Amino acid sequence: MEIRYATNPTETKHYDTERLRQEFLIQQLFVPGELKLVYSHVDRFITGGAVPTGAAIKLEAPKHDMGADYFLERREIGIINIGAAGVVTVDGTEYTLESKDCLYVGLGNQDVQFHSADAANPARFYLSSTPAHKSYPTVKVAISEAEPAHLGSITNSNERTIYKYIHLNGVQSCQLVMGMTLLKPGNMWNTMPCHTHNRRSEVYLYFDMPEDGVVFHMMGEPTETRHLVVRNEQAIISPSWSIHSGVGTSNYTFIWAMAGENQEFSDMDHVAMTDLK
């Protein structure tokens, strides 16, 4: 498990490109046959990827890093499959996830394993985990069951559909909020006009991008903006003080996961376009 420590806005404004990438960009999450995990001290997020290509991959807790006997001893997790069909087994119960389906697994479940329906065309499980203090039921939500919200316009290059999976009015959790945004063809911008939310942090995973495509992810304080070049299936850690917008060379999809002081999706500190620098 890779460990990332929290940074502050005063220091961050002095970082060069390489340092920004080391602190905030997760470049390689999906490795065939492996479980990859990144532990961030920003709201204690664990972000990961599992690509089963043979035997099942078990979700395990590195004892030195987590101090737990099993991964969900003090945690909850949201899982979204971005690959071919796969199965997540939770304490002996199987949940089949097609592409873009979500599974929430609550505190106290001890045995979580990932399988691909076809090892030659594997599932690609994206994981977001946060600390938890109460156990909620394991729930699967297919993308066909998630209520879509259509927002934006082609005029502003941000016509998109938002799917909320884990949230106050959907799957219940302790603090994890998780969903997915799909931009329609011809649209490239997300989360602009931008905002911060000082009461919680966020992690983005960008995917459904061509091999030569990139997203210019905007970050930093509203008056001290920076950018990171993000490629397919790479993730961004966004602290509470940072904006988190992006513009791509074509349309793309991203998964967002939030955790912190509350679970109100609309809790945002909007930034006027005239104040952005």
Rank of each mutant, 00 (worst) to 15 (best):
G220P: 05
L182R: 14
I46C: 11
G152H: 08
D269S: 14
F30Q: 11
V42K: 02
E18T: 03
A50T: 03
V229N: 00
L103C: 13
A257W: 01
E221G: 08
R4I: 02
A146C: 04
V87K: 13
Q234P: 05
V31S: 11
Y136E: 05
I162G: 03
L72F: 08
S99W: 01
M218V: 11
R4V: 07
V112Q: 07
H167F: 12
R21E: 14
G152P: 05
P32T: 06
Y206F: 12
C174K: 00
E145T: 03
N121F: 07
S40V: 04
R75V: 06
N156W: 07
W256E: 03
A123D: 06
P32S: 08
G67V: 07
A84L: 00
L151G: 00
M1C: 11
F30D: 03
S201Y: 07
A120L: 10
K164T: 04
V51H: 08
W241K: 02
S135G: 13
Y136R: 01
T253I: 09
K134C: 03
V105I: 09
A119M: 10
P239L: 02
I46M: 11
H133N: 13
D43E: 15
M219Q: 01
A50R: 08
E98T: 07
G248M: 02
H133C: 01
F254D: 01
C102H: 04
F71Y: 15
L29E: 07
M188A: 09
E18G: 01
D118T: 12
S99I: 05
H133M: 02
L72E: 04
G179F: 10
H64Q: 09
Y165F: 15
N8W: 05
I46F: 05
T196S: 02
L276S: 04
L176D: 12
M258P: 04
M273V: 12
G86I: 08
G92A: 10
H64I: 05
H14E: 11
H133Q: 13
D267W: 06
D16M: 06
V171I: 14
